[in-house]
Design a binder for these strands. Sequence first.
DNA 1: AAAATAAATAAGATAAATTCGCATTATAGC
DNA 2: GCTATAATGCGAATTTATCTTATTTATTTT
Lengths: 129, 129
Amino acid sequence: MQTRKTFQKSLTLDAVKEMPCHPTADQVYAHVAKKYPEISRATIYRNLNQLSETGEIRRFKNPCGADHFEPLLTPHYHFVCTKCKEITNVELDIDTKLLMSVCQQKTGGIVTEHLLVFEGVCKNCIEKN
Amino acid sequence: MQTRKTFQKSLTLDAVKEMPCHPTADQVYAHVAKKYPEISRATIYRNLNQLSETGEIRRFKNPCGADHFEPLLTPHYHFVCTKCKEITNVELDIDTKLLMSVCQQKTGGIVTEHLLVFEGVCKNCIEKN
DNA sequence: AAAATAAATAAGATAAATTCGCATTATAGC
DNA sequence: GCTATAATGCGAATTTATCTTATTTATTTT
């Protein structure tokens, strides 16, 4: 199946690039709908799915809520605050390729992705108490 | 809030221990409901939440679908097949305490949990093609 | 052991996040 | 420009999980 360039898809991609921090699909929708209220939520979802499949954006599968999306950045991991749900990027120097290949050997499968997420309470939320 | 021992809670805990592989809340419900059809889905969900909070069972936040539950085993990680959704345990020797403390230093927060999941195609699904 | 208390339950409503079905529209190749 | 089919819009449907409320039950107090 070939993909086509559409106005709505560009709006979706631009929104992810413009938006400061890890928007959810619904936040992307709200952002785009401000200027183009006639856009459909399903279109945003479909485009976010497609764009992350083609590698134009990155999907963060959030264990603490809805999935988030981000533009392509240098490789990093995420820290999710369980209080305020804020997501922070964390750069870590880990040989995940090695881990993936160990997992592959042990299971006999093909490992294509991995997800490493940290959870806890963020600086802001600690200071509030 | 103190927790109380109830018949339904025991059924929930026993189900997780009996069931072979990483049941979801709904699968636990179905399992228990076979013998006790009058049990409520909400009760199963509540008990699974409580039991994993008190540490009697472990919750696996599945990035590829509903959360799964498992009895307490030796520490391990998970490999999820994106085709058949099957979950395989993988034992890996990683110093995650170190990673968590690095994350803590970089973010200034308190890291209490971490999640490491591998995704791909399992042995069975490869052989089917 | 009976009464007081607070946790837990059943049942269904509700919520959040996302996808589906389908008629219609728009894009890209010829 | 015509044609095939990808993409859209809209609302319904799904999935996963929690909330509400009256009622029941387990523990604590007397």
